[in-house]
Design a binder for these strands. Structure first.
Lengths: 149, 149
DNA sequence: GGTTGACTTCGAGCGCGCTCGAACTCCTAG
DNA sequence: CTAGGAGTTCGAGCGCGCTCGAAGTCAACC
């Protein structure tokens, strides 16, 4: 990470820095910018992007929105609200609250999926344990896979 | 749901029944079958699929696998293991355990995302509350959006 | 001067998981 | 006899979110 100081104390990041720091690929960073999620990132005289600390923070916020399941289209709308000024805060709250809801719902679903997965694993492990206990099939009884729920 | 008995006591489901009961679209059900996730669903004399109770359970299991984040390709591999017999149970456990791990990881990430989202919402609500308290901008101080983390 | 390497723009392409629609077969009701 | 409705097969198409690669620019180094 070169992080050459650009203007005295100010730190500026290259696209590679941002990619490394956030885990968002360089391609994706440019894509986000094209799509208007990132506003105009200032360029150095040689044309290279120089991300500010704020830009970095904004990328991380975009990551958060993505992680909540927000599609790119909605993110764009949200960004536009943000640029439109303070009077859109109520709208922004509404959007975020909506995705919060959805996230909470998915989390509950995931807990249930985890339980079902655990049940399935327990079943399989039971079968394995039984097979270990009686390695040769003395009984002639063939257990069928009935744990399909 | 017609659920005409087909053979005495046996219940059989039409594709529409299964779609309704599971929430998997009819198109997707045929797609799954094509991809070998569902094995040969028996057909009535008129060519219509007649899903058994077991098939229904299997569809629900496929849903679970999808919900854990397993891609179709992996699901196919898992199904093949299942068809290969009891001796693949250890392998199946390995696969399921892997996706269990991933699920648990995602759940932890989601908890963090939820917290960050809540923080953002709290920040915005604070701004709204402040604006409510001082509807006219007496101070001349313009608050900037600094909650980008 | 030539090579390397990190960046730029641009538009095309891809992997995934369906989704759709055309053309067909059946069966049933009017 | 005709019309409607539910199913079938098949291959093409789509929406999403990147991802890639060609062709170019610029700066540094040997």
């Amino acid at each position: 990470m070169h992080s050459k100081s650009y203007c005295g104390e100010m730190s500026a990041y290259s696209i590679d820095d941002v990619a490394t720091l956030t885990g968002v690929s360089k391609h994706a960073l440019r894509y986000y910018e094209r799509e208007g999620l990132l506003a105009e990132v200032p360029k150095a005289p040689n044309g290279h992007r120089r991300y500010s600390e704020d830009d970095l923070g904004w990328v991380r916020f975009l990551q958060l929105l993505r992680a909540t399941g927000m599609p790119i289209r909605e993110m764009k709308a949200f960004v536009d609200l943000t640029h439109a000024g303070e009077h859109t805060i109520a709208d922004r709250v509404e959007v975020l609250a909506h995705y919060r809801e959805a996230l909470v719902t998915r989390m509950a679903a995931d807990r249930e999926h985890l339980e079902r997965l655990n049940a399935k694993l327990d079943y399989y492990r039971g079968v394995l344990a039984a097979a270990d206990a009686v390695p040769e099939d003395i009984t002639g009884y063939v257990r069928t896979d009935r744990a399909r729920t």
